[in-house]
Amino acid sequence: MSACFKKGTRTTPLAYITKCRILKSKQMLLSHPARPIHQVALSSGYPTASYFNKVFMEMEGITPSDFRKKYGYEGGAS
């Protein structure tokens, strides 16, 4: 299955799942600014906030907290 998936998508199943989880977490970080990072991690399928931070940093080059600060809406909901 893995070989067929990679042939069709040019990525591994694990890399695809990781990309989807990080995308979901980015959406949550911005749409729910009061939600703690550890809850975003759990909701995105990561067992711990520290592992989530590590993977997020590897994928995005920025921590989840810094991502939220950089791309979030300061001053609350608009």
Rank of each mutant, 00 (worst) to 15 (best):
T18F: 00
G8K: 08
F52E: 04
C4N: 12
A49S: 14
T63K: 13
F67G: 03
P64M: 01
L23V: 04
S25G: 06
G61S: 08
A77Q: 04
L23I: 05
A34S: 15
P36C: 05
S44D: 02
T18Q: 14
M59S: 13
F67W: 12
P36K: 15
T9N: 15
I62R: 08
I22P: 00
C20V: 02
M59G: 02
T12P: 00
K70C: 03
A34G: 13
G76S: 14
F52S: 03
T18N: 10
S31T: 15
Q27E: 15
P36M: 06
S2N: 11
P36W: 06
P47Y: 08
C4T: 10
G72S: 13
L42K: 14
D66C: 09
G76V: 04
L14Q: 11
L42S: 09
S25A: 15
K6V: 02
L23Y: 07
K19I: 00
F5S: 04
V40I: 15
P64N: 01
K6S: 12
K70Q: 13
A49D: 10
C20G: 05
K70V: 04
F52M: 10
A49P: 02
K24Y: 12
V55N: 01
F5Y: 12
A34Y: 14
G45D: 10
A34H: 15
K54D: 09
V40P: 03
G8H: 05
F56W: 02
P33K: 10
F52L: 06
E58M: 09
A49M: 12
Y46W: 11
Q39S: 13
R21G: 00
F56I: 02
H32G: 06
Q27T: 14
R68A: 13
A77W: 04
R68W: 06
Y71E: 08
T18V: 07
Y73C: 12
K69M: 10
L30R: 12
C20K: 08
A3I: 02
S43H: 05
Y73V: 06
F56E: 00
S31G: 10
M1T: 09
K6T: 07
R21M: 07
L23C: 07
G8P: 00
G61Q: 11
Q39F: 14
Y51F: 15
K70P: 00
T11N: 07
Y46N: 06
